[in-house]
Amino acid sequence: MKQKWKIKESVIRENELVFQLQEDANLENAKASGQMLVDSDSLAFIYLLEKENEYVYLEIPEMVWKDCKVALAANDTFFIKDLNGELLLENFKEEMEYLIENIRGNGNYGEDMEKAVSSVFL
């Protein structure tokens, strides 16, 4: 079974957006994959992390999308943080922008996901 980590909050710093992980997540030995997916059922974007030869799904919920929009517009760098450190989310901006554009007017992602993305990003 794949692990799914949730973001509990986002913090905008100078030229950076940092996602704070849930307490039980541990970034040790995790690597950024540079790839994202969409979870229409949860109304979330998913960033793929690699850890111990498995993928970990980093769920980017709707509650942090407004910060994402600001950070995307400012060309900020995206990080994930746990209690012990931070990890750069490589290719986050490019993947997020691609998915947002792809979701616009595309019913394949579901009406709720399309409306949610449009209401925040478009």
Rank of each mutant, 00 (worst) to 15 (best):
Q3Y: 09
K4F: 04
W5V: 00
W5I: 00
K6G: 01
S10T: 04
V11K: 12
E14Q: 15
E16V: 00
V18I: 15
Q20E: 09
L21M: 01
L21P: 00
Q22I: 07
Q22D: 14
D24W: 04
D24L: 05
N26K: 12
N26H: 04
L27S: 01
S33K: 00
S33F: 02
M36P: 02
V38M: 01
D39K: 12
A44T: 07
A44K: 04
F45L: 08
I46L: 05
Y47P: 02
L48F: 09
E50H: 13
N53Y: 10
V56Y: 00
P61T: 03
P61W: 02
V64C: 09
V64G: 05
W65M: 01
K69M: 08
V70N: 06
L72I: 14
D76Y: 10
T77F: 13
K81R: 13
E86D: 02
L87S: 01
L87Q: 03
L87R: 09
L88A: 01
L89R: 07
E90P: 00
E90V: 11
N91D: 15
K93S: 14
E95G: 13
M96Q: 12
Y98G: 05
Y98P: 04
L99N: 07
I100N: 01
E101H: 10
N102I: 02
N102L: 11
I103W: 04
R104D: 13
G105L: 05
G105S: 06
G105N: 10
N106A: 11
G107P: 06
G107H: 10
G107E: 07
N108A: 08
Y109T: 10
G110E: 11
D112F: 06
A116M: 03
V117R: 01
S118Q: 14
V120K: 03
F121P: 01
F121M: 06
